[in-house]
């Protein structure tokens, strides 16, 4: 066997593996995609060819499901979370990156350590606190919780990007006549922009998909999309076609965001993680 043949076989083997892996990952999504366009009758059959219907997408927005409210809640919660998280995290990340702070390492580790605590452990204190101060079942409450969840990620990720900006560049700007604020505005922010965008989208995705806290801390007014999915249980069992339609509505923004940031995403993840 020549080297060339061996290489071809190896390539074919790799390709097969990738195809199998992709297939396994995509099957559920394809199933949901098909189910969303099926009628209640068709959904239990594994037919690939059927008469598609858009009816499900209408039904989920009607009574009693009213997915529109949940969509609104999810959008507000995720957006406001990002709008607050990114500027605050940027300030924190810049300080960690550029100043020598007392107990810097400890603080950084502790910020990350908050992520090691399982959510189930702290959810009860949250529930009690929120009940006492009247934040249960409010979007504000969810925003606060989501901020607590995304901030550590955002700080570490943005710090990675700011670490990547050569100190020379900032010092040059200072000697050239900039104040610290001007350095940040004119030099650091534009240079870190891809990182900030990545972090923003990352936070948005986390907040958008957050399930456990929303499940416990909301019941009616502030219910978000992932919780809304649980509504699609009828007397006749799970309403898979409606569930799938709602699933697509949840996933759609993720696909769009993934397209926007695919260029930066891996870079952002590794820079934040590996440094």
């Amino acid at each position: 066997m020549t080297g060339k043949q061996r290489k071809q076989i190896w390539n074919a083997f790799q390709l097969t593996l990738i195809l199998i892996a992709t297939f396994i990952m995509l099957v559920p999504i394809v199933w949901i995609f098909l189910a969303a366009f099926k009628t209640h009758v068709d959904v239990y059959q594994l037919k690939l060819f059927f008469r598609p219907t858009l009816e499900n997408f209408g039904t989920v927005f009607d009574d009693p499901y009213r997915l529109g409210e949940k969509l609104y809640n999810s959008t507000i919660v995720a957006l406001v979370t990002v709008v607050f998280a990114i500027p605050i995290a940027t300030c924190a990340a810049y300080s960690f990156s550029r100043f020598r702070l007392r107990g810097e390492t400890t603080m950084l580790v502790m910020i990350l350590a908050t992520q090691f605590v399982p959510a189930v452990v702290i959810i009860l204190p949250f529930f009690v606190m929120f009940r006492d101060i009247g934040l249960l079942d409010t979007r504000l409450g969810l925003i606060l919780v989501n901020l607590a969840i995304v901030m550590p990620f955002a700080i570490w990720m943005i710090k990675g990007f700011i670490d990547g900006i050569p100190l020379d560049t900032e010092e040059a700007a200072m000697v050239d006549g900039s104040s610290r604020i001007q350095v940040i505005r004119n030099i650091v922010l534009p240079m870190a922009a891809p990182g900030l965008l990545t972090a923003a989208i990352f936070c948005f995705i986390i907040a958008w998909n957050e399930f456990l806290f929303a499940l416990i801390l909301t019941n009616k007014d502030a219910v978000t999309l992932p919780i809304g999915l649980a509504l699609f249980k009828g007397e006749e069992g799970d309403l898979w076609n409606l569930l799938s339609a709602a699933g697509i509505i949840i996933m759609a923004p993720m696909f769009v965001l993934a397209l926007i940031i695919r260029k930066y995403f891996v870079q952002g993840m590794t820079m934040g993680a590996v440094r």
């Binding site: 050569p166 020379d168 560049t169 010092e171 040059a172 700007a173 200072m174 000697v175 050239d176 006549g177 900039s178 104040s179 004119n186 030099i187 534009p190 240079m191």
Partner: peptide, 20 residues
């Protein structure tokens, strides 16, 4: 004085240009 108030100009070893 802050660097900006010292009225000096500096050339850095790694140039310190603004890449954007």
């Amino acid at each position: 004085d802050l660097p900006k108030d010292r009225d000096v100009a500096m050339v850095f070893q790694n140039y310190g240009l603004y890449p954007h």
